[in-house]
Amino acid sequence: MSTELNLTLQVWRQPGPDAPGSFVTYEAKGIPDDSSFLEMLDIVNENLIERDVEPIEFPHDCREGICGTCGVMINGRAHGQEKATATCQLHMRKFNDGDTIVIEPWRAAAFPVIKDLIVDRSPMDKIIASGGYIYAPTGTAGEANETLVPKEAAESAMDAAACIGCGACIAACPNSAGQLFTSAKLWHLNSLPQGQPERFQRVESMVHTMEQFFGACTNHGECAEACPKEISLDFIAYMNADYMKSKIKNRAKSAQI
C-alpha cells in the first residue's frame, strides 16, 4: 500500500504575461507516494478550488513522457532531479515526507510566461519551419525499400529523433541556448540518405533561426543533463561541423548558379 506524504510547495504564480509574478506557498497534505508529480498538483488544485483559490496552471497532456508538453523547474532543475525523466513521469515516491519543493516555469528570455507555470515555446516550431524537414510532397515518393538505410544509420537517426521538443535543454542552459534541440533535429535528418540533398541548406537556415531566438552555446552540458530523452551532446558537435561545411558548400552552390 502506498504511504502518504506531507509537503510544502513554493509555486510561481503569475496571472498573465504582463503581470508581475511571485512565489506562493501551499501545503500539500496526504499525497499518495504512488501518484505522479502532476497528480500531486491535481490534488493541490482540487483543494485550492474547494477553497475558492484559482488553481495552478501547469503544462501537461499525454502524461506518458512523449508529447513534450509538460516541464517545470523543480528545485531549480528542469524536470527535477531524476535522470531521463520528464515531469509527468516523475513519481512522488522519489520525494520524502516533509520536503519543500520549489516549482517554477521554464526560465528563458525566448519563453515568456503565459500564466503561472506555462510558457510560450513557439520559437522551437519556427526553427523546424525554417528547415527541419525533408521536402517530399505527397505522392512523389518511390518505393521505400529502393533506398537502403543501414541499420546503424536508422538507429542513430532515431536516437536524435527521440527528442520530444519540451524545451528543458533551453531552460536548463545558463545561456538559454537552443543547440541541443536544433542539433537533434539536424542529426535525425542529416544522417539519413533521404536527408542529403538539403543537408547544408538545412543546417544553415536552422542555425540562423535558432540564433535569432536563443543564446550562444558555451558547452556547459546542462542541456543533456536535463534532457528527459538523453539526447547526446555529440549531436551539437555534428551540427557545428555541418555548419562549418555549409559555409563553403552553400557558397560553392550559389557560385555555380
Binding site: 515518393a141 518511390g142 536508422a154 533521404q194
Partner: peptide, 17 residues
C-alpha cells in the same frame, strides 16, 4: 513510401531494408 521519404527512421534489417 511517403513517410520514409519524409525521413521517418523506420526500423531496418542489417541489409538496410
Amino acid at each position: 513510401d511517403q513517410m520514409t521519404a519524409q525521413g521517418v527512421p523506420f526500423a531496418r534489417e542489417y541489409g538496410g531494408l
